[in-house]
Amino acid sequence: MKKSSRGRLHWQPIIGATIVLFMLAVAIVGPFLMPYGEAEIVGFAFDLPSPEHPLGTDVLGRDVMTRLVYGARNSIGLALAVVVLSFLFGASLGLLSATLGRGVDFVLSRFFDLILAIPQKVFALLLLAILGTSLPVLIIVVAFLDSPRVFRISRAIGLEINALDFVETARLRGDSGLGIMLRETLPNSLPTLVSEFGLRFCFIFLFISALSFLGLGLQPPSADWGNMVRENASLIGFGEMMPLYPAFAIALLAVGVNLVTEWLAERWSNPAHE
């Protein structure tokens, strides 16, 4: 991590934070400023950009600009909820597994292996078909399916940290497993976990849009960016820009989030500079 020169540290968080804050502002305030509704049909399908519809209209004649803004709220909110939940679940169990070891580690590791053994999308399909596709269910199911990866990486970092002498010192003074995990292991695994958070956040976007493609993601007429790409994909063949707007929004957010998390990880991995 020391490879990056100090020069990069200065613009990296600024650009990243600008992107993320802008996206968040759009997601939170945006929907109140839009003249049209999320699912309101305001014109013909695939209208070209005009003063009333700066980015044109989509396949059903809804305002693309409006749907992008609502999409920001839905997509970011959904992905954020999923990643937070998946980290709470996966990282806490991963670190616990590494710290307690033995039986606990064995049982937890095999449990997560089991989830990993079933193809993720098929498993999602199954669970969503059984449990329905309401928003809370969607969030929990996707977070659950994403957590094995978080579990495995947290467990690996945890094992590495727990081999260090300061953890042995904690054991020698009789600290409990939970105490060691919270005081010794967790703070030292944060740099890696934070950068992993940024990465997983972007994967979740793609996963949810894949689910949407199967009709199991966010249900229409709610706008989400992944969905919007798919709905309007047919336009690509005509050389139109429209499907690229939501795709571009996803890419931009991914870059922004990773710039911020990478910078945070780098900063935190060097507590002397705090």
């Binding site: 002498d165 010192t169 009789g174």
Partner: peptide, 28 residues
């Protein structure tokens, strides 16, 4: 074994490691 030792035993015996770099939690 360590897990069977009482706090008073843990207190009486203290270990100082070879490498001070890894013996201190860098985040404390």
């Amino acid at each position: 074994s360590l897990s069977s030792r009482k706090a008073s035993v843990l207190q009486k015996l203290q270990l100082i490691h070879q490498y001070p770099d890894t013996a201190l939690n860098p985040r404390q």
